[in-house]
Structures are given as structure tokens and as C-alpha cells.
Design a protein around this nucleic acid. Structure first.
Length: 256
DNA sequence: GCGACAG
DNA sequence: ATCTTGTCGC
């Protein structure tokens, strides 16, 4: 897939916020999704590995020489593993999957998630050949203090319809939805503006937060999320991407 | 200043 | 996210 190169990624948190303010103007809330045949899911996993290194061992007597040995634990290597999968819609059968791993260069700061996970996910999308009609992200869309959650951010760079599908709360005001599958309550910002929905994807399970990322309406986003959700809380493409990222991480830890 | 805070 | 044992329920 093609990716727009609109900004740098090696930035400070302050610069990241400035980039968000800039990109925010490009968000399209109108529906651009025609017939949907392919739905993608994108997620990331993280790992901290003990980096092998050399260390000096001090001699007990002045007669023996200082020795160098291999040891562990002196340095940590932080990695981020990305996974993107493409499913047929509405059949929910796997069509393609790609992964990537990169050194982790940005801290976790609520509101700046895309600068932590975005780079590796884009690297996955670069490899994807079956361009999806819509993408599900494990995080917020415009349900975000600057309307620039990871789904909005990457949706713009990929120029694709994108949906934010977060497992927990970040921003906005809402009431809890009723306890049945498909029940939802709108989420609004401080000005009363509609920014997303708190959606119950299963009975007796904590609801998720769905919001537009890019090029899609909220009602269409809700429809798609529900259509992709079978037996579990999260839509299938996201569950699969999550598992794939976890497997990629475990391979790295084993080969280490 | 205090509380909230995607993954 | 990650660290971790048991436990409730289909």
C-alpha cells in the first residue's frame, strides 16, 4: 500500500502535538466507503529484552588480569512488533497478514499513542498487497482530546477509511449503554459535539469505544464493527492482529 | 493545584 | 502494554 509522507516520526512529545494539530484539518468524516469486501485489523505488541554485553570482572588479586565476560542485564532493548491482517467481509476469512518489528523510540503518553505504534504499523501496511476498504485500529479515532487518535492519524496517511476501536476510555462524556449486544450511547466532547459511541459488542461484557478515524461516518463504523464481531468482545480482525503481533514478539524472544 | 489518562 | 494465580462459568 502507498503511504503519504506528511511528517517526521523522530519527534518530541511537544512536536507530536503540533503535528496532530496540523493533521487534524485533514480528517474527513463523510462516508467514502462504497462496497466493502476487505477489512483490515492493526495492532502492536511490545517486548523488553536483556541485551547481551561485555563487562569487566575485577581481579581478586593484583596478580590476575582483568577479564572480559559476556553478561546480561546491563542494557535493555525495547522493541515494538506490528501486525496487520486483511479479512474478507462479511465472511471474516483471512486473506493476508504482514508483520514488522522496530526499535521502540517513543514513550507511552496518553493522547500520543500513534507516535509509539504508528511507525511499525505503517511498515506492515507497506507490505500489504490487498488494499482493504476499511481499517480497524486498536485505539481511538476522533474520540480524542485533539480529535487525532491513531485511527484518524493512520487513516489520513494511508488515505483509507479507518475506525477507532478502543478497549477503554480516553476522552469524552457519555452514559453506559444497556446490557445487550448492539446497544450503544453516543459520546460527546465538552461542547456537546458528537465524537463517537460507547458500544456493547456482547451481553455482560464491558463496552468498547468506537469512533470515526477517517473517511467514514459513525453509524457506518458501528455497523462494520458489529458485523465483524462474532463471539468475542473485539471484532475478528483486531483479535487476529493482536494474536499475530504477540506471536511475532514471541519469535523474537525465542531467537534471542 | 488536582484528577484523568487509548496501548 | 506487561507483570502474574486462581477462579467463575459455559
Amino acid at each position: 500500500m502507498k503511504i503519504k509522507n506528511l511528517h517526521r516520526w523522530d519527534v518530541t512529545p511537544k512536536e507530536a502535538i503540533e503535528i496532530q494539530r496540523n493533521l487534524q484539518k485533514r480528517i474527513l468524516l463523510k462516508n467514502f466507503s462504497k462496497d466493502i469486501h476487505l477489512v483490515a485489523g492493526a495492532d502492536a505488541a511490545f517486548s523488553t529484552l536483556d541485551k547481551l554485553c561485555f563487562a569487566n570482572v575485577k581481579p581478586k588479586s593484583t596478580l590476575s588480569k582483568t577479564k572480559k565476560i559476556i553478561c546480561q542485564g546491563a542494557k535493555k532493548e525495547n522493541l515494538v512488533h506490528g501486525a496487520v491482517c486483511v479479512f474478507s467481509f462479511p465472511d471474516m476469512e483471512l486473506v493476508e497478514e504482514k508483520t514488522a518489528t522496530l526499535p521502540l523510540k517513543f514513550p507511552y503518553i496518553p493522547g500520543l499513542l500513534s507516535f509509539r505504534e504508528g511507525t511499525v504499523l505503517l511498515k506492515c501496511f507497506e507490505k500489504i498487497k490487498n488494499a482493504p476498504d476499511v481499517i480497524l485500529f486498536d485505539g481511538q479515532g476522533i474520540m480524542h482530546p485533539r480529535k487525532m487518535g491513531i485511527a484518524a492519524h493512520l487513516g489520513i496517511l494511508l488515505n483509507k477509511p479507518a475506525i477507532g476501536c478502543a478497549k477503554s476510555y480516553l476522552y469524552g462524556e457519555f452514559n453506559l449503554p444497556a446490557n445487550f449486544k448492539g446497544a450503544f450511547e453516543y459520546v460527546r466532547d465538552k461542547n456537546g459535539e458528537l465524537i463517537g459511541a460507547c458500544l456493547r459488542t456482547r451481553k455482560d461484557v464491558k463496552p468498547i469505544f468506537v469512533s470515526t478515524g477517517h473517511k467514514i461516518s459513525l453509524s457506518k463504523a458501528i455497523d462494520i464493527v458489529l458485523a465483524c464481531t462474532k463471539r468475542y468482545r473485539l471484532p475478528e480482525p483486531l483479535r487476529y492482529a493482536h494474536r499475530l503481533a504477540e506471536i511475532t514478539k514471541q519469535r523474537y524472544e525465542k531467537d534471542y
